[in-house]
Design a protein around this nucleic acid. Structure first.
Length: 483
DNA sequence: TTTTGAGTTGTTCGA
DNA sequence: GTCGAACAACTCAAA
């Protein structure tokens, strides 16, 4: 025996040291800590991360390992089901206890209960803590004890509760010195190889807790002041860029919440802007709240009337959308930003999603799967809930007749065209008057800008006016076919 | 139980 | 060019 028996801290969607109750608890017990990250296989309840999210996970694990090792705490990497792998490790190292932070969502909670009871049978203590959401799901309930289905009353009720204050990084953590087996991160194949398409993502993003905190600092100190007004303009760096870090728990929602509230209280951030931002964090809560009651949120229409919706099957149009070749510049810019950087501005996500489901009449699940694979922040709750919201089949969804006009949206939110010019460089020299509708540009304007429609940049795959009418009549079909 | 007010992010049309 | 209404009714949440 080289050391006392270790306390294992299981890391999952909480790849951070600050505000990590499981780690803090283990540190306070005084037992030596062995950190463990488990890469779990796909299961009925666990959706494997998409390609872009795997890239992020790799970087975040490198960062977490560095942060832990700097404090003398080793990180074991293992693959397999939590149950078998963890019990195996517990036996090998003679662990005395296992701690973890709960994950959001009903399936995870039940799995945790099963895990805890299996570990108890091994004679190992377990401790689990709320950590990844502002509120536990049962804390926000309607007057009759049900789950909210409308955001505004949900958030109004949630606002009555103050989230727990975030914990600091534990001052001293005793690292375990014993031997253990660990897989090599490189062997997990989380990074793309042939081809390595992640170059553009790496240019924009640095995964890990310390960079997440830098982004939060910058946002609270500068960006939040104009958030209410500027957040809708994709060419402005006016959003927090925290979504992938929240997805992987590199920073906690509670830390974000308290930092923003402190900035309001200190007069450093305008309350309206800051509260607008917090309500976006509230939407994350709401989406997880929905997923808790609807595990199949990604595969089933929240509103069952949409089971009758006459979706079109159009592989060519789907491919044009995915590649950013629809002929609508704001949509194409967004889809290319996504493909290149693993992220898309929220306003443009709505426009692109509306275009797929309404203009192309393609099932939202196709789009949801594409986003799942390409977004570094793809989240099991936010992604499907957002798609269902745009489509009109979700909880508290946009009304069906709200069909974004990609030209008007482009002109309104990218008036100078900086966003489109950046991501659709073949239109770079086109006058802003035509930038969002190049098919209406006079031949001379096009030729002076070096644009040849149908050659250098596609003609629109559908006409807005007729696509809009088609979508409205599809909705009409759905409603009149009611049983 | 019944009633009432309200509901993230828009667009189009016609005065 | 600007403005307000219509879009279509429905469900939720709370009193």
């Amino acid at each position: 025996m080289t050391d006392a028996s270790p306390h294992i801290v299981l890391f999952r969607d909480d790849l951070r040291l600050a505000d990590n109750p499981a780690l803090t608890h283990a540190a306070h017990t005084g037992a030596p800590v062995l950190a463990l990250f488990l890469l779990e296989p796909e299961s009925e309840t666990r959706r494997p991360p998409g390609a872009a999210a795997r890239w992020w996970l790799h970087g975040s694990l490198v960062s977490l390992r560095g942060d832990l090792e700097a404090r003398g705490v080793p990180l074991a990497l293992m693959r397999g089901s939590a149950h078998a792998t963890l019990i195996d490790l517990v036996r090998r190292v003679g662990a005395c206890a296992v701690s973890w932070n709960r994950r959001a969502g009903a399936p995870s909670r039940e799995e945790d209960e099963i895990l805890a009871s299996a570990l108890k049978d091994e004679g190992v203590e377990t401790h689990h803590f709320p950590a990844n959401m502002l509120f536990e799901p049962e804390a926000v309930r309607t007057g009759s004890g049900g789950a909210y289905r409308v955001f505004t009353p949900f958030w109004r009720a949630a606002r009555q509760i103050t989230p727990d204050a975030p914990l600091p990084v534990p001052q001293a953590i005793k690292g375990w010195k014993g031997a253990f087996e660990s897989e090599r991160l490189e062997d997990w194949g989380l990074l793309p190889t042939k081809p390595d398409w992640a170059g553009g993502i790496a240019q924009v993003w640095t995964p890990g807790e310390s960079d997440a905190r830098l982004r939060l600092d910058a946002f609270v100190q500068r960006t939040v002041a104009d958030y209410g007004e500027r957040r809708d303009f994709p060419a402005d760096a006016a959003t927090s860029l925290l979504s992938p870090s929240l997805r992987f728990g590199e920073i906690s929602a509670r830390e974000i919440w308290h930092r923003v509230r402190a900035a309001i209280a200190a007069g450093d951030a305008p309350e309206a802007d800051a509260e607008k931002f917090l309500s976006e964090v509230g939407w994350r809560e709401f989406c997880h709240h929905l997923l808790g009651g609807h595990r199949d949120l990604a595969t089933r229409n929240f509103n069952p009337a949409f089971d009758r919706f006459p979706w079109a099957r159009d592989e060519k149009a789907l491919a044009a959308w995915q590649k950013g070749r629809t002929g609508y510049p704001i949509v194409d810019a967004g889809m290319r930003e996504l493909w290149t950087t693993g992220w898309m501005h929220n306003r443009v996500r709505m426009i692109a999603a509306s275009f797929l489901t309404k203009h192309l009449l393609i099932d939202w699940q196709e789009g949801e799967r594409w986003f799942w694979d390409t977004l570094v922040d793809a989240d099991p709750a936010n992604n499907p809930a957002g798609w269902q919201w745009v489509t009109g089949c979700g909880a508290d969804a946009a009304p069906y007749f709200r069909i974004f006009n990609p030209v008007l949206q482009g002109e309104k939110f990218d008036p100078e065209g900086a966003y489109v010019r950046h991501w659709v460089p073949e239109l770079e020299r086109l006058d802003k008057r035509w930038l969002h509708k190049p098919w209406e540009a006079p031949a001379r304007a096009l030729s002076e800008a070096g644009v040849r429609l149908g050659e250098t940049y596609p003609r629109p795959v559908v006409d807005h006016g007729s696509a809009r009418k088609r979508a409205l009549s599809a909705y009409e079909t759905m409603r009149s076919d009611a049983p």
